[in-house]
Amino acid sequence: MEVRTIKVFTTVDNINLHTQVVDMSMTYGQQFGPTYLDGADVTKIKPHNSHEGKTFYVLPNDDTLRVEAFEYYHTTDPSFLGRYMSALNHTKKWKYPQVNGLTSIKWADNNCYLATALLTLQQIELKFNPPALQDAYYRARAGEAANFCALILAYCNKTVGELGDVRETMSYLFQHANLDSCKRVLNVVCKTCGQQQTTLKGVEAVMYMGTLSYEQFKKGVQIPCTCGKQATKYLVQQESPFVMMSAPPAQYELKHGTFTCASEYTGNYQCGHYKHITSKETLYCIDGALLTKSSEYKGPITDVFYKENSYTTTIK
């Protein structure tokens, strides 16, 4: 009895394709271990004539594949690729409408935090270190965002349907971005203890939790000093293409032309909904596939993004 075979390709990165001759009487799992086709788990399936010449994702289970996976995804987590594939199996079914010149995501599976993050990423200057993220990001900007969303979920250790947080998501993504040249110098002034300067680099240099107003941050924000008295913390120097200011959701007025974009969060910790506000020729609110415009805006804002380049204080 002759062994019926077909020729397929296996890959971990969709760049390096490895030619395989597979036995049609055995499952993919018996031949390769966990195997995925377009995100779908085909591990328990036997090869079919229609699979001839198709590319299958496999887990990096030998040295060659491990090197290829690390170079593309910059992670050695053995569960990463499987999590990416199972997320992709959902995100490829989502709709990605162009809204006001940006790629958004039609609401499904509690994905409003991903839509808000995706919209924000198209408006701030950011370059990702893992080629996987950078490639998928370019495709997302062009309207094909399924891979990018699935990668975000995998890097953030999230599953489809789980509630997510924009600030946490951005923080994970910033860790995989090139923020080497970003720098922030802060000064804390206390009447009792004097003053202390701190220099922050990388992710810490672009994120701040405690106030939404970048102007206020430049002037000074009140913080408790270690001595128990009130101290003032203010920005001395900022070198970065953008800054992200966050605070627990509270009524906040966004003035046209003073910011790049913002995240609105309605609801409580267990259950809520994100919308995205962007400042173009007027203010726009993007909620999944829905767009509304207004000249002014007041609502429960939790993150505001500002364009920056270089700032030095005039406070002496």
Rank of each mutant, 00 (worst) to 15 (best):
D41N: 09
E71T: 10
G228T: 06
A115T: 14
K54S: 12
Q98Y: 14
A150Q: 04
P34Q: 04
E281F: 03
I315Y: 15
E264T: 09
N187V: 10
C285M: 10
P249Q: 02
K92R: 14
G299W: 00
K127L: 09
D63L: 08
G143Q: 00
P300S: 12
Y297A: 10
N157I: 06
G267K: 14
T211L: 07
S86Q: 13
S50V: 11
F32G: 06
L81R: 05
S25G: 09
Y113S: 05
V185I: 13
T192N: 12
F32A: 06
A69T: 10
L59E: 14
Q31C: 11
D41A: 13
Y172E: 07
Y73F: 09
V42R: 05
T55Y: 07
A132G: 09
P248A: 07
K307S: 13
E308R: 04
F148C: 05
R141Q: 11
T19P: 12
Y297H: 10
N178D: 14
P131S: 04
I6T: 11
P47R: 04
Q175W: 05
R4F: 08
D23E: 12
V185G: 00
H276I: 05
G82Y: 13
T116P: 08
L88K: 06
Y214H: 03
I124C: 04
V99A: 08
Y274I: 02
T120D: 05
T199W: 01
D77V: 04
Q195R: 11
T5V: 12
F128R: 04
L119T: 03
L291S: 14
T91W: 02
V236H: 05
C182N: 02
S50P: 13
K280I: 09
T266A: 07
T278P: 01
V189S: 13
R66E: 02
P130M: 03
E239Q: 11
P130G: 03
V58D: 02
C193E: 00
Y28L: 08
G288Y: 00
S171R: 15
W107M: 05
T232V: 14
G194M: 01
V203R: 10
F174C: 01
T76V: 13
V21C: 12
F32P: 00
I15C: 05
K44P: 13
A108R: 07
P241W: 04
P97E: 15
E71D: 11
M207V: 07
K298W: 13
M24Q: 11
K275H: 06
D135F: 08
K219C: 10
Y252H: 13
N110D: 03
T169E: 02
T169R: 03
L65T: 14
N110Y: 01
V189C: 13
Y234W: 07
L17T: 15
L290E: 14
R141I: 10
L212N: 00
V188R: 03
T312S: 11
T198E: 10
A247Q: 10
E125C: 06
T11G: 12
K255L: 11
K201N: 12
S171P: 04
A140C: 11
S79C: 10
G272M: 09
S310V: 14
H18Y: 11
E68G: 02
V203C: 11
T282K: 09
P248L: 15
V166S: 02
T282W: 04
S213M: 02
P47W: 04
Y252E: 04
H74G: 12
Q230W: 12
D135M: 10
F259W: 02
D135V: 08
Q196A: 10
C225M: 01
H90T: 11
I15R: 14
F56I: 11
V42D: 01
G143D: 05
S295C: 06
Q175P: 09
T11M: 07
T5C: 13
V22K: 04
G220E: 03
T75M: 14
G161R: 07
S294E: 11
D63K: 08
V243K: 05
V236F: 03
E52K: 14
W107I: 06
H48C: 10
N89G: 13
Y72C: 09
Y137W: 03
P248H: 11
Q175F: 00
P241F: 00
T260H: 08
T302R: 03
V185S: 02
K316L: 15
K46R: 14
Y137D: 04
N111A: 05
Y214P: 00
S104A: 10
E281C: 11
N129C: 06
Y284P: 01
Y96A: 01
V188H: 07
L114E: 07
L133G: 01
H276R: 01
G39I: 06
T266K: 00
V58P: 04
L200N: 02
S104N: 06
K95M: 09
R4S: 12
Y72P: 05
I286V: 07
Y72S: 10
F174H: 00
W94Y: 10
S104T: 00
K106N: 00
A142N: 13
H273N: 02
A136V: 01
Y297F: 12
N16A: 10
L151Q: 01
G29H: 06
M245G: 00
K255R: 11
T103V: 14
T232C: 01
C112I: 00
Q195P: 09
I315K: 15
V67A: 12
A231T: 02
L186Q: 09
N49D: 14
L59A: 14
G33F: 02
R83H: 06
A250V: 14
G257K: 08
A140I: 10
T258E: 14
Q20M: 14
A150V: 03
K95C: 12
V206M: 00
Q196F: 13
G33K: 05
N111K: 00
N147H: 13
T75G: 01
E308Q: 08
K298P: 00
Q222N: 10
T314A: 13
F305K: 10
V3E: 14
D62M: 05
Y208T: 05
E144D: 14
N110V: 03
S310K: 15
S171I: 13
K183M: 10
Y36Q: 08
K293D: 07
T120W: 04
S295P: 10
S25H: 09
E264I: 15
Q196W: 10
A247I: 01
V160R: 02
I124F: 02
K93L: 11
Y234G: 01
S104L: 08
L65P: 04
P131L: 03
I315S: 15
T260R: 05
Q230G: 05
E239F: 06
V221H: 13
Y28Q: 07
D62S: 14
Q98V: 14
G33T: 04
T76P: 14
S263P: 02
K219L: 10
L254I: 01
G202F: 03
Q251E: 14
V185R: 06
T159D: 04
C261D: 00
E52D: 13
Y138K: 13
L291Q: 12
S104E: 03
D303G: 06
S279F: 03
T159K: 14
V236A: 09
Y155A: 05
K93Q: 12
G299M: 04
G194V: 01
C285H: 12
M209V: 15
H51K: 02
N268S: 15
T75S: 14
L163T: 15
L65R: 08
L118E: 07
P249K: 00
D165V: 04
E308L: 07
K54C: 13
T19A: 14
N111D: 09
Y96R: 01
I15K: 15
T199D: 04
C182L: 08
C149H: 03
K46I: 13
R184D: 04
G299I: 01
C271F: 15
S171V: 09
A115V: 13
S294Q: 13
D180K: 10
E204Y: 11
L126P: 07
Q195N: 13
A145V: 00
G101Y: 06
K233D: 03
I105N: 02
F217G: 01
Q238P: 02
S79T: 13
Q30N: 00
S79W: 12
Q238A: 03
G164C: 01
N157H: 11
P34M: 14
V243G: 00
L126D: 00
T91R: 05
N16T: 08
Y311E: 10
